[in-house]
Design a protein around this nucleic acid. Structure first.
Lengths: 207, 207
DNA sequence: GTTTGTGAATAGTTTCACAGCA
DNA sequence: TGCTGTGAAACTATTCACAAAC
């Protein structure tokens, strides 16, 4: 296929395919068709084939995709083939849930450090990770931690983001319900878990 | 403006605008321009004006949008002007975090019930909500609870979704990292908090 | 027979530029 | 002057249909 810019939407779907491929792999399957994968992850089969086609041909007509190859391929495209260390800021309810969440490992992430403003929490452990003082954020660079996760109350979000940027992180996952501004060299993704729910009533007329 | 189907993307942005409007309202402001709102929420001003234009004219040229009117308008469009009761299934780490999350109230949601498979948790309280036995799910309809939130391990997600559908919910917010299938009359939104993070390394080359 | 890969057609979304109103 | 509302243009993404590969 002649070169075309990869759509952002395609990138957004790759983790879904990766999860599906890992699932089939654990079931002991060796290869899978776009139709089968489509059934599992809830995306059309032609959409899946189109998405994969942006990265060259790696399926076998009449057979499907080799699951091992597929996993490696997607991991390399998304740069998930190396372990990415992340720092969590905020060890409250949400932060603790994130520390215990098994989903990060699946994509090669490791929450390697946790921080909290509350001095009483400092030194305690959550899911095997020792909570550190906010002042220690400056050590991130030396510890090769390049991602930050914000799980603090919204008033503190911008301040924490500034500190993370200062500490040299390259990407931030923001769980606080507030838009946060960062220099353009830093990529930020904001997830407001209530916002997705806010769209639901619109789509459920007889609610 | 002549009628045109409202883009899904516009609907997805409305909660963002709503949050911004509520923020300005709390600051004591009476009206706001699309430019000001744009600065807060990180969307272009013309995008905001376009989005609003799908629902008729409610701004004043030379002045901006009346904040009170804006809030009421968006709430009505999204059907957030009545309280929506939701049932949480799964009172583990994530479930507890959701129960304590203040963001739901902002959009008019109330987690009115919580359920867990673990009999030892049944009867205990989390953030003021008593955890009930899974068997009580069948009482949702009588209690006017039409939304379900799934916060259980992925193996149990499909089963819980089936039970929620049986209990008559109209919409489901799924936090388990697995695609779940439901009848087409039920709207489901799946959030995998790790999946968003999985896209980050792709956008941060020097990671 | 089955399943991939992809150009072309269709659909959806964003951006622009500016007329018109307060 | 300042800001909204919107048609038209540009851009992006999805869907289709089918030739080619196994």
């Amino acid at each position: 296929m002649k070169y075309r810019r990869v759509p952002d939407e395609t990138i957004r779907r790759l983790p879904v395919y990766l999860r599906g491929a890992i699932y089939f792999s654990r079931q002991g399957m060796k290869s899978v068709s776009s139709e089968k994968l489509a059934g599992l992850v809830g995306v059309n089969s032609w959409q899946i084939r189109k998405d994969f086609s942006y990265f060259g041909e790696f399926g076998t007509p009449g057979v499907g995709y080799d699951i091992g190859t597929l996993i490696k391929h997607i991991q390399r495209i998304l740069r998930l083939n190396v372990v990415h260390k992340a720092a969590l800021v905020g060890a409250g309810n949400l932060g603790s849930a994130l520390l215990a969440y098994p989903g990060f490992r699946m994509y090669g992430f490791e929450i390697a450090a946790a921080f909290d403003m509350d001095k009483r929490k400092v030194g305690k452990k959550r899911a095997g990770v020792v909570i550190e003082d906010m002042a220690k954020l400056r050590t991130l660079k030396a510890r090769y931690i390049r991602l930050g996760i914000i799980a603090v109350p919204e008033e503190a979000a911008q301040d924490v983001a500034d500190q993370l940027v200062l500490a040299g992180v390259k990407g931030i996952l923001n769980f606080s319900p507030r838009y946060v501004s960062v220099p353009s060299k830093v990529k930020i993704i904001t997830i407001d878990i209530a916002m997705d729910l806010a769209c639901l009533p619109y789509y459920t007329p007889a609610g």
